[in-house]
């Protein structure tokens, strides 16, 4: 109808100019949008007119450049360096698997691997279960619940250094916890002096900081659990605990798997908590070093062994990737 003549006018003139012109041109177009578009509109506005071939690449360019230069290139160069003896200021030579065989005899590596693995074993179950219980607690919309939800999220917002320092003071020999323990007659506990208690304290801090984050994830999952299931179960005489196991847990299981995957990858790569609480060396003799701390210590500085640090990084990659695949596969198996 009138559209074939109207289109060139709007396309050529006002759009390229000011916004007001475009709006004036848009009004006659609105009737046409549903009328003549399928047969005439598409063929008359050919694909090439949507944008120039280079346009998408210009749009993507900033992100692509940054991601390639500072994520993908370092990733590839980590893989390559792991087979060399590169040092911070000295170009490396190909050494084959020497870095990896050295690792097998390196006590520091095994200590790091042990601590990172232990970290995961303790932290992940706590972060899968406790935030779910917390979400159940704040799920019901009783007065003031918004305040409690926000308050429980506060540790997530604070930086890990701040959180670490707060707990260093809480767990200090003369800090709040120990003076309470002393007041009730238990006596002082060396949370920050014993190597195992120190690691355990760092794990506690990780869980403490993560609670609110995973609570929110569970909260959105709980919103999708049909109320009828709970009602049917309670009609059948199931108590609260029983309903938790037979209704809530199956309904949020995929979220639990997700939380398990996220938290296990994060726990295995732990750095800041232990660095802040145990010091850069990971305790007096380095007994509390984690793998990422070892990477940082080995690879930085003027004499940093970039090659060896890269090899340890590769182990970190392989394990985190393996963990993710393992968790996702376990999920699929249960589905089948």
């Amino acid at each position: 109808m009138s559209s074939p003549t109207a289109r060139p006018a709007t396309a050529a003139g006002p759009v390229a100019g000011a916004g007001a012109g475009r709006e004036a041109g848009a009004r006659p177009a609105s009737g046409r949008r549903f009328g003549s578009r399928p047969p005439g509109g598409r063929s008359a506005a050919p694909r090439a007119r949507r944008h120039l071939p280079s346009t998408p690449w210009l749009f993507a360019a900033p992100g692509l450049v940054i991601v390639c230069a500072f994520v993908l290139y370092p990733f590839v160069s980590t893989l390559v360096d792991s087979f060399t003896d590169r040092r911070a200021l000295v170009a490396g030579h190909w050494v084959g698997l020497a870095n990896f065989t050295e690792m097998l005899h390196d006590d520091a590596f095994w200590i790091g691997l042990r601590n990172s693995a232990l970290y995961m074993v303790v932290v992940v179950p706590a972060l899968v279960v406790l935030p779910l219980l917390l979400a159940l607690l704040v799920h019901k919309k009783i007065p003031g619940i918004g305040f409690f939800r926000s308050a429980f999220y506060t540790p997530v917002v604070a930086s890990i250094v701040v959180v670490g320092l707060i707990w260093v003071w809480m767990l200090d020999d003369r800090g709040l916890i120990n003076s309470v323990l002393e007041a009730v007659g238990i006596g002082k506990v060396g949370f920050l002096s014993d190597q195992w208690l120190l690691l355990l304290s760092a794990m506690f801090v990780t869980v403490w900081k993560g609670l609110g984050y995973y609570m929110i994830i569970y909260l959105s999952a709980l919103a999708n659990v049909p109320r009828e299931l709970h009602e049917a179960a309670s009609v059948d005489g199931a108590g609260a605990f029983r309903r938790f196991l037979t209704v809530t847990v199956p309904a949020v299981r995929s979220t639990m798997v997700l939380v398990g995957a996220l938290s296990s990858v994060a726990a295995f790569k732990v750095f800041s908590e232990v660095y802040v609480m145990a010091g850069p060396k990971g305790g007096p003799a380095g007994e509390d070093t984690t793998l990422v701390m070892l990477v940082e210590r080995t690879g930085t500085g003027l004499t940093g062994r970039v090659g060896y640090a890269s090899a340890i990084s590769v182990v970190v990659f392989v394990i985190t990737l393996g963990l993710m695949l393992l968790v996702l596969r376990a999920d699929r198996k249960e589905d089948a």
Binding site: V67, A69, F70, V71, L72, Y73, P74, F75, S77, T78, D81, A88, V265, K269, F271, V292, V295, E296, G299, T300, G304, V306, A309, S310, S313, V314, V316, F317, T320, L321
Partner: peptide, 17 residues
């Protein structure tokens, strides 16, 4: 792929860059 690369594993190479 870039999203899946763990930052902790590439910091040394990033620093070299």
């Amino acid at each position: 792929v870039a999203m899946l690369v763990p930052v902790e594993g590439i910091v040394i190479a990033q620093f070299q860059t």
